[in-house]
Amino acid sequence: MTRSEINRFHNDDLRKRRVGGNRFNSLPLGGEICAHLMVGLFSFLCVFPFAFVIIISFTDEKMLVENGYRLFPEKWSLAAYKYIVSSGEQLLQSYFITIFITIVGTLMGVLMMGMFSYAISRSTFRYKNFFTFMAVFTMLFNGGLVPYYMVCTQLLHLRDTIWALILPLCVNAFYIVVLRTFFKTMVPESVIESAKIDGANELRIFFQIAAPIAKPGIVTIALFLTLGYWNDWFQALLFIENNKLYPVQYMLKKLESSIEFIYMYSGYIDPVKRVEIIASLPTEAVRMAMVVLATGPIIFAYPFFQKYYVRGLTVGAVKE
């Protein structure tokens, strides 16, 4: 895709135009119905599983045990959410961790990558090719999981620290390329030069001129980062044992496997304890309610940031 094509795409809002340009060149009625059916069905499939989970979370626990998961439960109940409100310390703690790493990580990532991308977008920066290559090369080749794990645990001692959830995700070569494109295309060299003549140093130019001009790009990358942190469970899977540090996604993952564990090994556990353990674990509806609560914020925020997200995707496809 060339830049002009993308600009054209962004300039014309999706709503305002359609291929063919005018209404006389529309699909025949049969085709139109067919298109609606296909796209509509797929769209429905995309949201249906989430709707189903919401229904399960509002189903009476007894009904779940007797009838299984039903689309139209015989009895509704708020018990799962009441239970979470009254005894959801783990969920609260995990929410706190997730929000903390999301905010700190996003800020750190935007700041670090913003400065880096600004520097390599400057044509007067003597080492720009070296540093650009240094970042881009990591997209082509990596050491793999084992050496990465060893570096993080043995050299940086990240195991069971909050930094294990923040640091590994805050820099990404693809985001750097996207940001650099934004700086290159949006911030005119002449503006920077005139600021230099007025005596501003590079840091000041970055914070007071370049970053505000390239704000759409920075917002886009901040969204990418936020989403990455919110949805991450892999770093926790690798490095976190302490349940005080579980982010929401990993807590959900743990919830599922501990139940499976009890299920699989119930034969080997003392029966008295088994009942106790199973009773102490969240029940079916509560688990699904937690899934709803973990996904809720994304679902609500998503229609608002979709536009920026799409722009980031298409700009990423542009090459200098």
């Binding site: 990558m113 400065m115 520097a119 390599i120 400057r122 990591t138 990596n142 060893m150 640091l167 840091l203």
Partner: peptide
């Protein structure tokens, strides 16, 4: 270039720690 070099420093350190050291670790 010292101002711009200062600005690329944090990401450079990150890349060395999280990308390039593991690359050498490939000899494992």
């Amino acid at each position: 270039n010292k101002e711009l070099l200062f600005m690329v420093l944090p990401v450079t350190v990150w890349l060395i720690l999280f990308s390039y050291l593991p690359m050498f670790g490939i000899v494992i």
